[in-house]
Simulated scan of single mutants.
Amino acid sequence: MDLATLSLFLPACFALNMAPGPNNLLSVSNATHYGFRRACTAGIGRILAFAGMIALAGAGLSVVLQTSQWLFQAIKIIGAAYLLYLAWQLWRANPDAGQQVTGAAAGFFALARQEFLVAAGNPKAILLFTAFLPQFVDPTRPVPTQFAVLGVLFLLLEWIAISAYAYMGLHMRRWFAEPRGKRIFNRCCAGLLSAAASALLMAKRA
């Protein structure tokens, strides 16, 4: 893979990584409630989900999603339902509690599982990998190797995005130290997650 291709891929890829979405919003919320380090480590769940999607896209499973209407609908309904569940938990969270919860205990595995399920519940993601990554693959060179390199770079940039959004959430925690501020923040996040669920339900196959 030459430098010219990388010079096009990296900024375009990072723009996708930094785009606001349910997972990045979750990083902000987790950092606000549990701290920067825990929000970043929870992102491992998202990385694992995206790594699996990249592997599936490379194996051609995206064709199944593009041709199977019922499978696409089933995945996006489950994903939207989980987002709505998280939104409900945030909406009813007690702002006076020392630890906020978004559906489960605040341990690493619980938060990582949230990140994984939110990422895995969006069938458009695997289609995005199929539509985006191949644009930077040279068919005259070994395709699997190029796809693997692009996938690793995407995941590295995604980790930077996780850290960036978690850092924002860390500073927002100082702004919402009072119970009233926590309630406003929780309900704003709940509204945005509900909007993301609605957008997911309206999503159509590319």
Rank of each mutant, 00 (worst) to 15 (best):
P134L: 10
W88G: 14
A42H: 14
P179T: 07
R174K: 11
A4D: 12
A31G: 11
E158H: 10
G181K: 08
V63E: 08
Y85H: 11
G52A: 04
P20K: 04
S29F: 06
V143C: 06
Y85P: 01
Q69C: 00
M18W: 00
M53G: 14
A19C: 09
L127F: 05
L86F: 05
G52Y: 00
Q114A: 15
A166Y: 09
G45N: 03
A148N: 05
V118Y: 07
G169L: 10
P20C: 09
G21K: 14
T140D: 05
G79C: 11
L170T: 14
I47H: 00
R38N: 13
F129L: 03
A39W: 12
R183N: 04
G169N: 06
G151P: 07
L56D: 08
S7E: 12
A87Q: 13
S7M: 02
R174D: 00
A110W: 10
E158C: 07
L65K: 02
K204I: 00
A42L: 10
D96V: 01
L48D: 05
L84P: 01
L117D: 01
I162W: 06
N30Q: 11
R113D: 01
L86Q: 07
R183Q: 15
G103M: 09
D138M: 00
P139D: 09
S163G: 08
R92N: 10
A106E: 11
R92H: 14
G60K: 06
Q73D: 13
A93L: 02
G169E: 03
A120I: 15
M18Y: 02
A112T: 01
S7G: 09
A97Q: 15
C189T: 14
A15L: 11
L90E: 02
P20M: 05
A87E: 02
A105H: 08
